[in-house]
């Protein structure tokens, strides 16, 4: 099975890549291709031009930039999972990367590619929301920053314009985070049936700030605002965690599919928020 034919360009500079995207209709950016190529084979997407960004130097670094870390567009899941900077400052994202699919996919697929695609239930978007990541997009029109909270619009839809490349993400340091999920075949591999990414900042024995994100629960990942509100100002006790977990799907249209009914998935959302919070507040 082939994907439909297309023009393939592999620029060696960002400017060339942006020009290629601006100069053609119906383009797609190719980084690892672990989602894009299957989608093309199944004819869900049919770009006429594919812009491979893997030969652009400088996009595959994870760097320490003072009050934040930066993850470049070509950083593969395997690197995100094992990189000491990500493990120290953004452990929810490292854990999400480590539980994504299998090693064969993690060796090629990229963190930014997964974010840009926003596949239903993908691991990375939930972690990016909880960590308050900033998305850095570039096009021939210039660069812009998009907050994670404004980035994941709907299933397979992000705030990126067709001529933009997600060149990097930045994640502020501070706080503690984790990612917990139930995969479709049990365990942590495969897409989650339900997953929670949580970030908390604790000072003087109370939770001073929190963000709780869920993915796999609705058509796009979301911040459970009610859960965070229930937690902030509390002592992080079991009661506070239970209260936060009870708000995990407030106001959300919970998915139903062959893996879980609405009732079961709603239950799972609370369970995974609770487990993740127990982990970071232990």
């Amino acid at each position: 099975m082939y994907p439909p034919n297309f023009d393939y360009v592999a620029p060696t500079s960002l400017d060339e890549a942006l020009a290629a995207l601006a100069g053609a209709e119906n383009t797609k950016v190719l980084s690892g291709g672990m989602s894009l190529i299957p989608l093309m084979k199944m004819r869900f997407v049919r770009p006429t031009t594919v812009v491979d960004i893997s030969r652009i130097p400088g996009l595959d670094d994870v760097t320490d930039d003072g009050d934040h870390i930066t993850i470049g567009a070509m950083v593969r899941h395997a690197t995100t999972a094992s990189h000491p900077l990500v493990q120290e400052h953004a452990s929810a994202l490292a854990e999400a990367a480590n539980g994504t699919a299998d090693l064969l996919v993690r060796n090629r697929g990229t963190t930014c590619g997964s974010l840009a695609l926003n596949a239903v239930a993908a691991d990375q978007p939930g972690a990016a929301l909880a960590l308050n990541a900033t998305m850095h997009a570039a096009s021939v029109r210039g660069t812009r920053e998009i907050a994670a909270a404004d980035f994941f619009l709907d299933a397979m839809t992000s705030a990126l314009a067709p001529d933009e490349i997600l060149t990097k993400i930045t994640i502020p340091k501070g706080g503690v985070s984790t990612y917990r999920k139930l995969g479709r075949r049990g365990g942590s591999s495969d897409y989650p049936i339900a997953a929670a990414a949580v970030w908390v900042d604790v000072s003087d024995g109370s939770v001073s700030d929190a963000r709780i994100a869920l993915n796999g629960v609705s058509s796009t990942p979301y911040l459970a605002v009610g859960s965070a509100e229930a937690l902030v100002g509390s002592d992080g006790s079991a009661d506070a965690i239970a209260s936060a977990a009870s708000h995990a799907t407030d106001g959300v249209n919970v998915l139903e599919d062959l893996y879980a009914t609405v009732a079961f998935r709603t239950h799972l959302a609370g369970v995974y928020v609770r487990r993740a919070l127990e982990d970071v507040l232990a």
């Binding site: 393939y8 190719l30 291709g33 672990m34 190529i37 084979k41 491979d52 064969l104 090629r108």
Partner: peptide, 10 residues
């Protein structure tokens, strides 16, 4: 890596 979803060009 998975050669079935990797383009030869890549």
């Amino acid at each position: 890596m998975l050669s079935c979803i990797t383009l030869a060009s890549q």
